[in-house]
């Protein structure tokens, strides 16, 4: 009986031996890096099952006893500024979903208006944004903080209003998207008696759903993970990353590293799950290439 032929993976077809060897080598490097990411995550999982003392004294050993209940204790014991896990989760969702959603809706509407409508100044936002992106301004942190404080937006849920910004990179994405949309859809709707609000809401906006979804998810991942501005502007309304930071620094007057690392694992799960579910949406709908002016 003849041996079955080894079928090369589809990706290897039409590649020379040298390229196959290169791909295997590159894959090995990628494996090492990816394995290090997974190791770090698993280390946190194991640390979450240890006692505080075990984590300090033997950080790399397996636990003497696996305390899986720590992952449930997180929900009651992770507390910062009188805010527990659920409060911080609410704050994280409020500011990530709320801020990103508001920002994208405002930006999308702004980009649509500037792209599809001609009025004095309709071209200016595009030019301004290009200038803003390519001519960086530094050092306005202090001035910004004073403005937010004067407006009562420090340590306040109203801080979300700062997301009502249309002058960002996202404007360019939406602009490119709407530019490529034919106006004939709008004209057809106008003939049916639709006004500009209806055209935008029922015709154009739904067509921008794919790019909106991808950008929303990308933006959400960034804000979900953000601690720098939240630490400055929302110290008393801690989001999860700020809560973790404060629990580690200002609040570790009680020794609970076990809860801290269990919390790190718990709070990573929503983002991991969402990303696995939507990674194709993100990677295939966002393109910065060949944006034609």
């Amino acid at each position: 009986m003849s041996k079955p032929k080894l079928r090369m993976p589809k990706s290897f077809r039409r590649k020379s031996k040298g390229e196959i060897a290169l791909h295997i080598f590159v894959s090995f490097i990628f494996f090492l890096v990816a394995a290090s990411y997974v190791y770090v995550f698993l280390w946190a999982v194991v640390a979450g099952t240890k006692t505080h003392t075990e984590i300090v004294i033997n950080p790399f050993s397996l636990p003497q006893e696996w305390h899986w209940e720590h992952f449930l204790d997180v929900f009651s014991l992770l507390e910062v500024n009188g805010k527990n896990f659920w409060d911080m989760l609410f704050n994280s969702i409020y500011f990530s979903v709320g801020a990103v959603g508001l920002q994208h809706i405002v930006t999308m509407s702004f980009a649509y208006c500037c792209t599809k409508y001609k009025f004095p100044g309709s071209e200016w936002p595009y030019v301004i944004i290009l200038i803003m992106l390519t001519l960086p301004l530094y050092g306005s942190g202090g001035a910004s903080y004073r403005i937010y404080k004067a407006l009562g937006m420090v340590d306040s849920y109203s801080h979300i209003l700062s997301a009502l910004s249309g002058f960002s990179m996202n404007f360019l994405y939406y602009r490119a998207c709407f530019k490529s949309m034919s106006w004939s859809y709008a004209e057809a709707a106008m003939m049916d008696g639709a006004d500009d609000f209806v055209i935008y809401g029922k015709v154009m906006m739904p067509m921008a759903k794919p790019i909106f979804g991808a950008l929303f998810l990308t933006g959400w991942l960034g804000i979900w993970n953000n601690y720098e501005s939240a630490l400055i502007y929302l110290p008393n309304i801690p989001t999860l990353p700020v809560g973790i930071y404060q629990f580690n620094t200002e609040m570790v007057y009680r020794a609970r590293l076990d809860i801290l690392f269990a919390a790190c694992v718990i709070i990573s799960i929503p983002a991991i799950v969402l990303f696995i579910a939507f990674n194709r949406v993100i990677t295939t709908n966002v393109s910065l290439g060949g944006i034609k002016g």
Binding site: Y94, G98, G101, S156, Y157, S158, I160, K202, I237
Partner: peptide, 26 residues
Amino acid sequence: MRNMKKVTAFFLVTVMTLSLAACGGT
């Protein structure tokens, strides 16, 4: 499409209400 609009509208209203409510204090 209709659901998308409803979800967006609901989301907007919720967020704006919450932020207005928040304007009154922590």
